[in-house]
């Protein structure tokens, strides 16, 4: 018998409606998630990539039982989020991005004690769990300081410790590095990397491609409430497939000639004076390079496509994505 996945989502739809005062029926507004299917296996670190407003947080909240689905089924650790939310809550931990989710006026230790009690931990078990987590996340020396005096990076460590207080099977990280400086974000990713090495199941939402590549086993792209699953191999193939060659001092005849090469998708003028040739495959990129060199263009550089471009290729959509 095969073990069921940690997260199993089928046909998940979530719409947000609003009701006008005295109106009998609500007005259906935004479709945040549209027939989403997703499977995350136990032990997998799964990245959910998408721009702001794509539906990542909505999906995270449904998994955490904070929101109810409008349609479809969502099973977390074998329990349905609608019919058995309490069972789901016992087996998950959630870490929200930014400053959300901690009591600033309490110390780090008091926060952990409070949240631990809400998961049914108490006495020696709770104390030793807090000791273990404060030690692990480098909070020991500041555990008796108020959280509101912490830097964003320190706060995020407390967030992570809180998310792990009940040793959950699934950890939901909703844009955990949002607003962190690069050093703190790197530290945080290293911590997530440790959890990954332990074999913990993690769903990480982010709009940062580098972050997803660094810590995730598998990623899904999401936009306009629609999801597309991809593994790192697919991504790597896309990264190497779509190449860009930038050249400076390209004459109009050369530009016209290069743009007619098979596999050159489009030509773009960059703000720094370079002309960018978008090639759809490696042979086309090679042909572009050869043509430019033949035309005695010497200032040439190439680069990998941005997440936005990969995303557009994957989704076939028209909408861009911010890349940090």
């Amino acid at each position: 018998m095969t073990e069921s996945p940690c997260i199993e989502i089928e046909g998940l739809t979530r719409t947000f409606s609003h009701r006008i005062f005295l109106a009998r029926r609500p007005i259906t507004g935004t479709i945040a998630l549209d027939h989403v299917n997703l499977i995350v296996e136990y032990g997998e670190v799964h990245g959910l990539l998408g721009p702001n407003g794509a539906g990542k947080t909505t999906l995270c909240k449904i998994l955490a039982t904070i929101l109810l689905p409008t349609a479809g089924t969502v099973t977390v650790c074998g329990s349905d989020v609608v019919t058995d939310p309490r069972a789901v809550r016992r087996r998950i931990g959630i870490v929200l991005g930014g400053d959300r989710g901690l009591y600033g006026r309490l110390t780090a230790r008091q926060n952990l004690r409070h949240w631990g009690a809400l998961y049914g931990l108490h006495g020696t078990a709770l104390r030793s769990r807090i000791d273990e987590l404060t030690e692990r996340f480098g909070l020991t020396t500041r555990q008796h300081d108020r959280v509101e005096t912490f830097s964003r990076g320190m706060k995020q460590r407390v967030h992570l410790a809180r998310g792990l207080i009940a040793d959950p099977e699934l950890l939901l990280l909703d844009e955990p590095t949002d607003g962190l400086d690069p050093v703190a974000a790197t530290e945080f990713r290293a911590l997530v990397g440790q959890l990954r090495a332990e074999g913990r199941t993690i769903l990480l939402t982010t709009h940062n491609m580098a972050e997803a590549e660094q810590v995730c086993d598998r990623v899904s792209f999401i936009d306009n409430g629609t999801i597309l699953d991809a593994d790192p191999a697919t991504l790597s193939a896309l990264v190497s497939r779509y190449e860009r060659i930038d050249a400076l001092g390209v004459t109009e005849p050369t530009r016209a000639r290069v743009s007619t090469i098979a596999g050159v998708e489009r030509v773009e003028d960059l703000p720094d004076g370079y002309v960018r040739f978008h090639a759809t495959d490696r042979p086309a990129a090679t042909a572009v390079l050869r043509a430019l060199v033949d035309a005695e263009v010497t200032r040439i550089r190439n680069s990998e496509p941005s997440l936005e471009e990969i995303y557009l290729h994957l989704m076939g959509g028209q909408r861009g994505m911010r890349v940090d």
Binding site: A64, R89, R90, G101, W115
Partner: peptide
């Protein structure tokens, strides 16, 4: 305001006694 209400709802604790 502190964003803890969502996290509270996501815990298995019953909020009424709390």
């Amino acid at each position: 305001a502190t964003g803890t209400f969502e996290v509270l709802v996501a815990t298995p604790a019953r909020l009424w006694p709390l």
